[in-house]
Design a protein around this nucleic acid. Sequence first.
DNA 1: CGTGTTATTGACCAACATCAAACTTAGTGG
DNA 2: CCACTAAGTTTGATGTTGGTCAATAACACG
Lengths: 255, 255
Amino acid sequence: VIGKNVVVTAEIHPLIQKLSRAISLSEAEASLVADTPVYRRSFNRGESIVRQGDRPTNCFVVIDGLSCRDKIVVGDRRQISAINVPGDLPDLQGVFLDVLDHNITALARSEVAFFPHKAILELFAGAPRVAAVFWRELLIEAAIYREWLGNIACRGSLPRLASFICETSIRLKIAGVSDGYKLMLPLTQGELGELLGMSLVHVNRCVRALREEQLVVFAGREVLILDWQRLQARGEYDPSYLQLSKKDKKGLPLA
Amino acid sequence: VIGKNVVVTAEIHPLIQKLSRAISLSEAEASLVADTPVYRRSFNRGESIVRQGDRPTNCFVVIDGLSCRDKIVVGDRRQISAINVPGDLPDLQGVFLDVLDHNITALARSEVAFFPHKAILELFAGAPRVAAVFWRELLIEAAIYREWLGNIACRGSLPRLASFICETSIRLKIAGVSDGYKLMLPLTQGELGELLGMSLVHVNRCVRALREEQLVVFAGREVLILDWQRLQARGEYDPSYLQLSKKDKKGLPLA
DNA sequence: CGTGTTATTGACCAACATCAAACTTAGTGG
DNA sequence: CCACTAAGTTTGATGTTGGTCAATAACACG
């Protein structure tokens, strides 16, 4: 739990850190945020941060690492519906809805900061600009789902994979954990398949195709983008749904 | 524009009507809501209510009719990513994000009530319980997207169509415009295809299959569910993501 | 060094897309 | 009321994408 004196604290309050990226907080807002108690916890790859059926009383912000939303769909098939990057607040759902309909699972060792629902409700009531940041993020999350729907429904497998890499590159770069070309993405090809709605075998074929086209190299838990523009073209990727600011776009050769 | 005296007004303020279904408004809340000015407008089938690229200054609540979110994905393919039913507030996006990344198009003659962004922001600041209603709805919308992702990615075409009918039946029933068995759904099979991510021809075959299995009849602009339970089974449909209350479930033989 | 996980490749097959054409329905104007 | 048109539906034939099965190779970890 962090005290009032934010600036000189060794550990910056994770919510302040997160919000400062989006807006510049006033003194009053900052101290309001700084008052919300947090406790940090780490999760290893494969661990559930929250589970389907849970009725959480806490919410959390991702400080570091990578996680995903997932759900068992039919018999044994798992669907991954979203990737969470540092700065995300993936469990707003728990604040407003009773019971969780999916899991959030760590894909890499992740550090998260929990804080009580009550705190975030008070924050929303007391600092509308902070609430607006979260409205925006939730709306962008919805826009990402729509984009994925379009990808899975309309595009072939290779553009689908290419689009995913483009999107994730941008999101990791905004989150400050990638330069946009070298991505730390510890996903197995099986997980990529659960994400993109295709079989493990076919993911492999697409990965190979992207390598042969000199667009992307998959190296263990890293992904290297060799040619951003051609990759974007291959994925017919238009990032407008991400609502990027000019600052966000810097450093990526977006068409 | 509606005055303060809500109860005796001939036309009930559409937002009050909408919110009363979710929570019981206090006097103070009701009068706050009643103060937000609205103007109504009708749209014919095929008309855009808002368009990709717009920077709207107004938001709207659907009073009656049916509409969808849609977007041109690749060359000429349109993807429909969501259906809006009466009571929905589909353009919260415009309040918090600059530019719209998709259209909202009327699928049947629709009546909507517009009100300025400023009004809804004031409402959120002044009535947190009202804000909570909209948080919930946006989160459920996101849950619906996730469910559709799972459907398109994991399930065959017939369960996909069956699931869509189950979901829409429930949503129309909650909206108060269907008994859950007879749905007013003026979608062409082409539109169903854009919605489910399959070709018009294949939609037709699935429609026929559902008819032959005596589960659903498509009659012009109406859909009749003959056997809810078997339809649900055929679609492997689990509505938990809709966060239904007990009241909502009444009248539908959900497993 | 062995054991389990992940990646890679090939062969085969099914679901669904595409193409093409006939048929039905609804709307329009004479 | 009928003829005409446009939109939507239905059906068949054919082709392709990507799934499934199966086996091997490369790693990773104790």
